[in-house]
Amino acid sequence: MTVLPKDIPGDSLKVTVGTANGKPGDTVTVPVTFADVAKMKNVGTCNFYLGYDASLLEVVSVDAGPIVKNAAVNFSSSASNGTISFLFLDNTITDELITADGVFANIKFKLKSVTAKTTTPVTFKDGGAFGDGTMSKIASVTKTNGSVTIDP
C-alpha cells in the first residue's frame, strides 16, 4: 500500500482569532474563523484551546458560528481559569461536516476595569488537533492569535 501526501505544500487550514475593542463593562464579541476549508477536504472534527487573561476578560458565552451545522449536538465549549476549550465533531461522520469558510465560534467577553488603554492577547495554547471530512488528521493548520483592547 502506498500512502501519498494529501496536502499540497503551502496549503493549510487557517484558524484565526479576531479582535475587538471596548470600554470597561462593555461586552464584545471576538470571532474565531476558519478559511481554506474546502482545500483541506472539509473539517469533520477539531479540538483546540485559547488562552486569555482572566483578570482583564470575563467569558460571558461561547457560541457556535454559522458554519457549524447542528451545533447543539456537534459543538461544545467550556471556559475557566483563562482557557477556553473548543470541540467539534460531526456526529453523523459525513452529513454535518464544516464545508465552508466563515465564523466557527463567537466568544463574548465582558471587559474588566483598567486604568490605561490595554491590549490583551487571545492566543492559541498547545494541544488539540483538526481532522478532515474523512477524519484524517489535517497536518497543516495555520493559527493566528487575536486580541481585545480595553480603553477606559
Rank of each mutant, 00 (worst) to 15 (best):
L4A: 07
L57F: 08
I84W: 05
V73S: 05
T16V: 11
L111T: 05
G146M: 04
T45M: 04
D36T: 08
I150D: 14
S61K: 13
S77C: 15
K112F: 01
V32T: 08
I150Y: 14
D11E: 09
S140W: 02
D11T: 11
A35K: 13
G146L: 04
I93M: 03
V62S: 05
S147H: 04
T92W: 03
P121Q: 07
T16S: 12
S85T: 04
V32G: 08
V114T: 07
P24D: 08
A139K: 14
L87T: 00
L4C: 12
K69E: 10
F88P: 00
T99V: 07
A64L: 00
D7A: 08
V43Y: 01
C46H: 08
G102W: 03
V3Y: 07
D126E: 14
A72S: 13
T19M: 09
D95G: 03
V148R: 00
T142M: 09
D26H: 12
V15C: 14
T92A: 03
V114Q: 09
G102H: 01
F130C: 04
E58N: 08
A100K: 04
G133V: 03
V103A: 10
K69S: 11
F75M: 07
Y49G: 00
I84H: 00
D11C: 09
A116E: 07
T120P: 06
T134F: 06
L56C: 10
L111M: 06
T118H: 06
T123M: 14
T119N: 04
P121L: 07
V32A: 10
T115N: 03
V68L: 12
A129W: 02
G10S: 11
T16A: 13
I84K: 02
A139I: 04
K14V: 09
T149H: 15
T19G: 14
T120K: 14
S80I: 15
G127V: 03
K108M: 07
S61R: 10
T120F: 02
V37I: 12
T118F: 02
V17M: 06
N74I: 01
G146N: 06
K143L: 02
D11S: 13
A105F: 14
F130H: 00
T29D: 14
I150S: 14
T134H: 05
C46T: 10
G133L: 03
F124R: 04
D26E: 09
I138Q: 03
I67E: 11
V17G: 12
V62M: 11
S12E: 13
D36W: 14
G128I: 00
G18S: 10
T94I: 13
P31S: 11
K14T: 11
T16D: 07
V62I: 13
V60K: 11
K137E: 03
V37G: 10
K112C: 00
K110P: 01
S61G: 14
F86H: 02
A116W: 03
I8L: 12
V28F: 09
V28L: 09
A129V: 04
A38L: 13
A64E: 08
S55R: 09
K143R: 06
P66Q: 10
N91W: 03
T29F: 10
T83L: 04
T45L: 09
V43I: 09
N42G: 07
L50R: 01
S136H: 08
N42Q: 12
I150E: 14
V17R: 00
F48I: 04
M135R: 01
G102F: 04
D132H: 02
N81P: 15
Y52C: 10
Y49T: 01
S61W: 13
F86Y: 04
T27P: 10
A20N: 13
Y49S: 02
G82Q: 15
V73T: 07
V59N: 09
F86V: 04
T99I: 08
E58A: 10
D53N: 09
G25M: 14
P152G: 15
F88D: 01
L87C: 00
M40D: 08
L4D: 13
G44K: 00
I67Y: 12
P66N: 09
T16Y: 07
D90E: 03
D95T: 04
D11R: 11
T83K: 15
N81V: 15
G127L: 02
K108N: 03
T2R: 08
V15K: 06
A71M: 09
A64P: 10
T134M: 05
A35M: 09
T27H: 12
T118L: 04
P66L: 12
G25E: 12
T99D: 04
F109V: 05
A38S: 12
T94M: 01
A139N: 04
L56K: 05
T29I: 10
A72Y: 13
F86A: 00
A79S: 15
S136Y: 15
F34G: 08
K110C: 04
G44E: 04
L4P: 12
D95W: 01
K112E: 04
V141G: 04
G10K: 10
T92R: 02
A105H: 00
F104W: 05
F34R: 00
T120N: 09
I67K: 09
A64V: 07
Y49N: 01
G51F: 08
T16G: 07
T119S: 09
D11P: 11
V148M: 06
F109H: 02
D7L: 12
G22L: 07
D95S: 05
A64G: 12
T118P: 08
D132W: 03
D151C: 15
N74L: 00
A20S: 11
M1K: 14
N91H: 07
D53T: 11
L50P: 05
I8E: 13
T33Q: 09
D26M: 09
F130I: 04
V60C: 13
T123W: 12
K137I: 03
N145W: 03
A71N: 12
T142A: 08
A72D: 14
E96L: 00
Y49F: 05
T149F: 15
F75K: 02
L56S: 12
D132R: 03
G18M: 12
T27F: 11
K110Q: 03
K117H: 03
G133W: 06
L89F: 02
A129I: 01
G127E: 02
T99L: 05
T45E: 00
K41L: 13
E58D: 11
D126S: 15
A35C: 06
N42L: 08
G51H: 14
L89M: 02
N106E: 03
L50A: 08
Y52E: 03
D63T: 14
V43Q: 08
V141W: 01
T45A: 06
V62P: 08
T149P: 15
A38Q: 11
P121E: 05
K112M: 05
V28K: 13
K112V: 04
G128F: 02
V148T: 06
K6G: 06
K110I: 04
T92N: 02
I67N: 09
D36C: 05
K117R: 06
T115M: 05
D132E: 04
S113L: 07
D63N: 14
S85N: 02
L57P: 02
L97T: 05
N42M: 09
L57D: 07
T94V: 15
F86Q: 01
F130G: 00
G10Y: 07
T134S: 07
P24K: 12
L57E: 10
A129P: 00
F88C: 06
L111V: 07
A105L: 04
F88N: 00
N47T: 01
A116P: 06
A129D: 00
T115Q: 09
K143E: 04
G18Q: 11
N74D: 06
V141N: 05
S80A: 06
V114N: 10
G51Q: 11
T29H: 10
G133S: 03
I93D: 00
L89V: 00
G25Q: 13
T19Q: 12
K6M: 14
K23M: 11
T19I: 09
T123Y: 05
A105R: 01
T99G: 07
G128P: 01
D95P: 02
V114S: 07
N91G: 01
G102Y: 00
S12G: 12
D151M: 15
M40G: 09
F124A: 02
V122K: 00
L89Q: 00
K6W: 08
L87K: 02
T16K: 14
G22E: 14
V103K: 03
Y49A: 01
G44C: 06
P24R: 10
A72K: 13
T19E: 14
D126N: 15
T29A: 13
K112S: 03
N81S: 15
E96K: 04
T142Y: 06
D63A: 12
I67F: 10
A64H: 09
N70D: 08
K41M: 14
V73H: 03
L111Q: 06
A79N: 15
K137V: 00
A71T: 06
N145P: 05
A139E: 02
V68G: 07
P24L: 12
A105S: 09
I138G: 03
V114W: 10
G127Q: 04
A72F: 13
V62C: 08
T27I: 11
T92I: 00
V37E: 04
F86L: 05
T119K: 14
A129N: 00
S147K: 05
T119W: 04
S113V: 06
K117I: 05
G146K: 06
I93R: 02
